[in-house]
Structure formats: structure tokens, C-alpha cells
Simulated assay, not measured.
Amino acid sequence: MKIAFLNVSYGVVERGAERFVDELSKRLKEKGIGVDIISANKPYKVRWPIVWRTYLDPFGIQVTIFTLKNLGRLWREKYDVVIPIDGGWQPAFVRIITWLYGGKIVISGQSGKGWDDRNNLWCFGGKMDFKLERPVVIAVGALDRDKRMDLVIRAMSQVPKGSLVIVGKGPLRLELERLAKSILKGRFLITSFDFNKMPQVYRGADVLTLASPWYRSFEMVIVEAMATNLPVVVNDELTTTT
């Protein structure tokens, strides 16, 4: 894997952005990942009040020129991941070039609350199409008594619209399928996926729910779902709310 950082002033100034690039690149290299830091080796120019939001101030123009000059390098090297640091029009240009050659882009701290995450999730995205009526409620876990998937099915039967996807393996699969067929008709799917497919599975749903009893410890699927920006509905118990 090859990763590139675009940082106009790296090696010249030490803002938080440059420290971020320095620390992250070192850790990536320690893991044997190839890293290039692409810099203009020049101090960043002044920002003008208000005008900077149009990216037409001196700093915005500096970043735009720097980025355009390096698009050819990104195309030749075809980095697996490009991380634009300077903001402005830089992420847009990088998004286009990486899309053209099939690379990925990770944005950090540039687009306002939530928007960086939306971009990154979309970029690394892909989501499962369950071919079911939406909204899709997903429950992930072993198909045994302890996970109470039957309770999830019965609860979903009280919802007039939408579908239920249960992801997991276990001895109760046939029993759960019979129950779902009787009260959900065609609004359900019970299946399983390899772990590396789970991000797409979560992104294909609208909400995750679990009905595990109170004595269960905090379950990792909650964190996995939230990491893909999927809302979760779980028991209001100490282990899941603290």
C-alpha cells in the first residue's frame, strides 16, 4: 500500500497540521506502509478575513496552485490513499483524480462537523443492497437464546413498514426463519457474511438494534455499527450506556 500526504508547508512550519502529518506518517512507516509527503516547502501565505471562505485569498490560491502542480504525480504514482491536509479546493481536486484512477481519499478536519466522516465513509464505501423494503433494521449476533433474536422479530412485526435483516450463525436459524415467515412475511432476511464485508453490510442498513439481556457485556457490534455512521437502538442498561 502507498499513501500520500499533500501538505503545502510541511518541513517549513509546525502547525498542528504539520505535526499531524509527521506523527501519522511515522506510525504508518513503522507498520511497513509506503508513505510520501508531498510539500511545496514554503511557508503558508496569509488568510484574508471572510474572503478565505471562497478560497480566493493568498493562502487559498497557494494551495490550489500547489495541488494542481501535483495532480500529475498523483496520477503517475496512483497512491492507494491520498490525504489532503490544506483544505480549500485541494480535497475536491484530489477527490476527482483519485476517483479517475481508483484510489481513495481521507479528509480530516476540513469540512465542518460530520462532513469529513460522510466523505470518508462514501469514499471507502460501497453498501450492501438487501433488495428489501426500507427502512432496513439490522441485528447482528449469534443465533442462540442469549441474543433474543426472536424478540427482535416480534418487535419488527409491530412496525408497519420496513424490513429486518438478521446477520449471524447459530442453532436457532431454522426456528427464527419459521417465526419471521409467519409474522414478517417477505420483510426479512436471515444471512451471514465474512467479517471483511461487514462495513458494507452496516452501510446498507438504516439502523442497528440488539435485544440482548442486561447481563451481556458491551457488544462490539455496537461500536462497529457506529463506526460506519449507523444509528443504534439498544437496551438502556449500564453496560451499553456508560
Rank of each mutant, 00 (worst) to 15 (best):
residue 42 K to R: 13
residue 78 K to S: 08
residue 37 I to Q: 02
residue 37 I to P: 04
residue 49 P to D: 05
residue 53 R to K: 11
residue 5 F to I: 07
residue 79 Y to M: 09
residue 83 I to N: 07
residue 64 T to P: 02
residue 71 L to I: 11
residue 24 L to Q: 13
residue 37 I to F: 07
residue 82 V to M: 02
residue 30 E to N: 15
residue 20 F to I: 11
residue 32 G to A: 10
residue 39 S to Y: 06
residue 40 A to H: 01
residue 49 P to V: 00
residue 70 N to T: 15
residue 24 L to G: 05
residue 76 R to E: 07
residue 52 W to D: 15
residue 71 L to Q: 01
residue 26 K to N: 14
residue 15 R to K: 04
residue 80 D to G: 13
residue 34 G to L: 06
residue 88 G to M: 02
residue 21 V to W: 03
residue 49 P to H: 10
residue 71 L to A: 04
residue 48 W to K: 14
residue 21 V to T: 01
residue 74 L to T: 07
residue 30 E to D: 15
residue 6 L to N: 12
residue 85 I to V: 13
residue 74 L to W: 01
residue 37 I to H: 03
residue 6 L to I: 05
residue 28 L to D: 10
residue 68 L to R: 14
residue 31 K to G: 15
residue 80 D to Q: 12
residue 59 F to M: 10
residue 10 Y to D: 05
residue 24 L to T: 05
residue 42 K to C: 03
residue 43 P to R: 12
residue 35 V to H: 05
residue 34 G to C: 14
residue 19 R to A: 09
residue 61 I to D: 12
residue 16 G to P: 00
residue 54 T to H: 13
residue 13 V to P: 00
residue 22 D to P: 02
residue 57 D to E: 06
residue 72 G to Y: 04
residue 63 V to K: 01
residue 32 G to C: 12
residue 59 F to R: 09
residue 23 E to Q: 07
residue 63 V to M: 11
residue 12 V to M: 09
residue 53 R to C: 06
residue 10 Y to W: 12
residue 15 R to N: 12
residue 27 R to S: 11
residue 3 I to Q: 01
residue 80 D to F: 03
residue 37 I to C: 06
residue 36 D to R: 08
residue 41 N to K: 13
residue 57 D to W: 09
residue 57 D to R: 14
residue 56 L to P: 01
residue 16 G to T: 02
residue 21 V to Q: 03
residue 48 W to G: 03
residue 88 G to W: 05
residue 43 P to V: 12
residue 67 T to G: 08
residue 13 V to Q: 07
residue 17 A to R: 10
residue 20 F to W: 13
residue 70 N to G: 12
residue 21 V to C: 01
residue 8 V to K: 03
residue 55 Y to I: 06
residue 3 I to V: 15
residue 31 K to N: 11
residue 49 P to W: 01
residue 26 K to L: 14
residue 69 K to L: 07
residue 68 L to M: 11
residue 31 K to W: 10
residue 39 S to Q: 11
residue 21 V to F: 02
residue 38 I to G: 03
residue 54 T to P: 10
residue 49 P to K: 04
residue 40 A to D: 04
residue 47 R to D: 05
residue 43 P to Q: 09
residue 12 V to E: 06
residue 80 D to E: 14
residue 17 A to K: 06
residue 84 P to E: 00
residue 73 R to P: 04
residue 9 S to P: 01
